[in-house]
Every structure is written in structure tokens, then in C-alpha cells.
């Protein structure tokens, strides 16, 4: 009997497959393609205390095997999420993780309090590259990661996941700081800061000039960082970054990730998270694994 269930720092999920924040809205759109209860969890679009309209369009550009986005945290604000979006998501048997972003530590804390125990987990977004204040500003120095994690942890009554930026010199230092401050889990990677230029107009492809790179091209970078972080901390890790196939997902689990998140792949194939889940089950059948921990972190390094 194959058991794909995962307990991520107290968040119980029926499979290790989660949808990544910012790529899945609040679930409604993809809920018209398949039953959202097939997912281990849904990490919702990044929330802020007040509604945000985000950056100017164009907000997306294509690069080789990847995309750049500069949405800039457009969202209806935490109150609308709690009143209108969360009740929709709660119809499904899937974990709901709220991704939160703020301009100040106080804003993050206030949001964690407002969420209370209405969600299964909180993902601390200190890695958004598309906003001027807050976002990645908190996520690139160990000291500030420690401070914000410690503060928000005091105000959260559900497991706190810290989402790390890859735009740092040593991600293991940042990971260790988050763990030290009391983070229950880590998720990585957020997007890599990138750029694309239209040679005919001689202007950047994004109205924000720069944006976050995601998609298959970033997977090797994400995998390396997940592997390094899993070796450096004891808390569980959600691996993400370019996962498009079940093989990609298994790579992250072999590298030590307890769960994995599917992001950009949903844009191309709305069923990607479901297909990846099925592929993981077939892999487990093939190699006789009965649970995720049977192969998690079992990478045989040279």
C-alpha cells in the first residue's frame, strides 16, 4: 500500500504536491479543471494587509525555458481573502497555506494574527523581487531574516514556513537564521531576479524593467539550493523552482525536500500538479516505496 501523505511541520497533507504561491490564484481558476482535493496543498497568491494593484503591464516575458514576471503582489488584501476566498478553498480536502508579504515587520505580524488558525500554515514571503519595500528586502540578510521570523512566529498559531530568496550569496546561512528564529519549515526557491530586452524597441520586456525568473531553466539552481539547505537545517523543506514533471519532483525529494511545489508548469499544463502526483505514485510503485520518507533525502552523493 502506497502512502503519499506528508506531515510538514504539523501541516498534514495527503500528498507532497503543493501549488506555488502566485501561480494558482486562490484556486478558483484551476478548480474548474480538476478537483482541488487531489492536491496536497494550495499556497495562495501573496497577501498584503491592504489590497494592492501591483505593477504596470507588461508583467510577463518569455526567456529560454523560462518566464520573467513582475506582477508586484497584486491581491485583494487579507480581509477579502478571509471573507471571500478562504471559504471557497475550505470546500476542498486540501491544506491551505497563506503566503503573506508586508512593508514592515508589524504588518507581517498583524497579518499572522488576522489569519489566526483559519489556515493550515503561513508562508512568510520575504523574497518577492517585484516590490520596492518589504519583500526581498527582508530576505537577503541573515540578521533581518532572523528578526522577522522571530517576530512573526510569536504572532502565528499555525506552522510558519519561511520562503527563501535565491538572490543571496549563501542560502544556507539564511536558512539557518530562519531555523534559529523558530521557523517550522522552509520553502525555496522564490524567483531569481532577471531581465529581458526587446532589441527592436531597445526597451526592457517588462514594464518594471526587471522581474522574477521561473520555469524549467531555474530548476538546476533550485535543486542545488534545496540540497544544500536540506544538509544545513533540520526543519522540513518545500522544494520548488521549475518543477514541471514527476521526475523533477522526485529529484527534489531525493535531494531532501519533504514536499514540492508546482508553479509555472500550471500555466502551460493546468493539470501539471495532478500528473506530477500520479508520476510520484508510479515511481514509488516501481521501486517498492511505501511512503515518501522511504526515498526522501536518499541521494547517493559522489
Amino acid at each position: 500500500m502506497i502512502n503519499t501523505s506528508t506531515n510538514l511541520a504539523g501541516i498534514k497533507m495527503k500528498s507532497p504536491v503543493i501549488t506555488a504561491s502566485g501561480t494558482f490564484g486562490f484556486g478558483r481558476e484551476y478548480g474548474s479543471f480538476y478537483d482541488l482535493s487531489l492536491l496536497g496543498g494550495i499556497t495562495v497568491k501573496g497577501l498584503t494587509l491592504k489590497p494592492r494593484e501591483g505593477n504596470k503591464a507588461p508583467r510577463i516575458a518569455e526567456a529560454s525555458a523560462s518566464i520573467l514576471n513582475s506582477v508586484g503582489l497584486q491581491n485583494p488584501g487579507i480581509e477579502v481573502f478571509l471573507d471571500e476566498e478562504l471559504p471557497f478553498l475550505r470546500q476542498y480536502d486540501t491544506a491551505v497555506i497563506a503566503n503573506i508579504a508586508g512593508n514592515t515587520i508589524d504588518e507581517y505580524c498583524e497579518m499572522a494574527e488576522r489569519l489566526g488558525s483559519s489556515v493550515d500554515g503561513i508562508e512568510l514571503n520575504i523574497s518577492c523581487p517585484n516590490v520596492k519595500e518589504g519583500g526581498v528586502a527582508f530576505g537577503t540578510k541573515s540578521q533581518s531574516v532572523y528578526e522577522i521570523t522571530k517576530s512573526v512566529k510569536r504572532h502565528s498559531c499555525v506552522p510558519l514556513i519561511v520562503k527563501l530568496s535565491p538572490n543571496v550569496t549563501d542560502i544556507t546561512e539564511i536558512a539557518a537564521a530562519a531555523q534559529e528564529a523558530g521557523a517550522d519549515a522552509l520553502s525555496l526557491i522564490n524567483t531569481l531576479l532577471g531581465m529581458a530586452i526587446d532589441v527592436h524597441t531597445q526597451r526592457p520586456m517588462l514594464a518594471n524593467n526587471v522581474g522574477g525568473l521561473s520555469g524549467p531553466a531555474v530548476k538546476p539552481v533550485a535543486l542545488r539550493m534545496v540540497w544544500q539547505v536540506c544538509g544545513a537545517v533540520k526543519i522540513p523543506v518545500i522544494g520548488m523552482g521549475g518543477i514541471s514533471t514527476w521526475e523533477d519532483a522526485v529529484e527534489f525529494i531525493l535531494a531532501g525536500a519533504s514536499s514540492i511545489a508546482v508553479g509555472t508548469a500550471s500555466f502551460i499544463d493546468p493539470f501539471a500538479p495532478v500528473r506530477i502526483t500520479e508520476g510520484i505514485v508510479q515511481y514509488m510503485e516501481k521501486y517498492g516505496y511505501s511512503c515518501i520518507d522511504d526515498f526522501r533525502g536518499k541521494l547517493k552523493v559522489f
Binding site: 481558476e29 501591483g54 503591464a57
Partner: peptide
């Protein structure tokens, strides 16, 4: 389909 918010 309305999930990613890029085409505003």
C-alpha cells in the same frame, strides 16, 4: 485563465 495576474 485568471490565476497569474500578468495580463492586466
Amino acid at each position: 485563465v485568471g490565476a497569474c495576474l500578468v495580463c492586466v
